[in-house]
């Protein structure tokens, strides 16, 4: 996934802390091997070679989510944005493929999904509190901080708008776009860059795998759309900075 993941955990006995962290990292590494575009053996590479691949139910659910966000965002989020045609899903066989020219890229959703899967692993290990992030742009939390207060993350610091501090408890947060990465988001509908300098989007939602993945996907979609679409699911809070001011914040959702 091309970034560093970091995990702070606690609430379990000493030797288990490291073991739990290793299990979570191993889960992320497994998903990286599956989702990378750059290794020949990955699922995404096989899709991009034209394969219509059968996958397990957990992985299929991620592709279903991507499809839902693609439809609900009018194509502003599209994992095949750099290709042509559409991603086709056959639920009867848990099969995924592309009708058209495949160029599948899960980069806008994989980090959140991987963090959600890591959260599951940590919960099963008995972890009481955790803060995880991937590349600084995707975050997930378990419980509160050890002192009982919510995890606090300040967003918008790289924009001209007044930064906002978000409190997270068992929630995930994804951010998309800022002036340091201007142009890295593509508008699938028009092809060109969708993220001018100063534009910043964020999404807060559940910390389960599909919840965290939805935050990632919707943060990207918001950066492209620059509005909250009516079909965006309840349970996700969104934030948008444009032209140096907050045009969407949790209070307006």
């Amino acid at each position: 996934m091309g970034c560093r993941f970091e995990i702070a955990i606690g609430g379990i006995p000493g030797p288990d802390v490291r073991a739990a962290g290793e299990e979570a990292i191993a889960e992320i590494e497994t998903l990286h091997a599956q989702f990378t575009r750059f290794e020949r053996g990955s699922l995404v590479s096989r899709l991009n070679e034209g394969g219509h691949e059968r996958v397990d139910a957990e992985t299929f659910a991620l592709f279903e989510l991507c499809d839902e966000v693609c439809v609900a965002s009018d194509g502003a989020f599209d994992i095949n944005a750099r290709g042509s045609g559409r991603v086709v899903l056959d639920r009867s066989e848990y099969r995924v493929g592309v009708d058209g020219t495949p160029a599948v890229d899960l980069g806008a959703v994989a980090k959140g999904y991987a963090l959600g899967r890591a959260v599951l692993v940590l919960r099963e290990a008995g972890v009481k509190w955790a803060f995880l992030h991937g590349g600084g742009s995707s975050t997930a939390t378990i419980g509160t901080r050890p002192d009982g207060y919510p995890w606090r993350v300040t967003i918008g610091v790289s924009t001209a708008a007044e930064p906002v501090t978000i409190e997270l408890v068992d929630q995930s947060l994804s951010v998309s776009g800022d002036e340091s990465q201007a142009g890295h988001i593509v508008d699938p509908r028009e092809g060109g860059s969708a993220c001018p300098a100063g534009l910043f989007a964020a999404c807060v939602g559940p910390a389960d795998p599909l919840g965290a993945a939805a935050c990632d996907a919707w943060a990207t979609a918001l950066a492209v759309l620059r509005r909250r679409p009516t079909d965006m699911p309840d349970g996700l809070s969104c934030f948008l900075v444009e032209d140096g001011r907050w045009t969407i914040s949790a209070a307006t959702c």
Partner: peptide, 9 residues
Amino acid sequence: KTSWRTPAR
């Protein structure tokens, strides 16, 4: 580099 350990209740 791994502990070879699994968290146990």
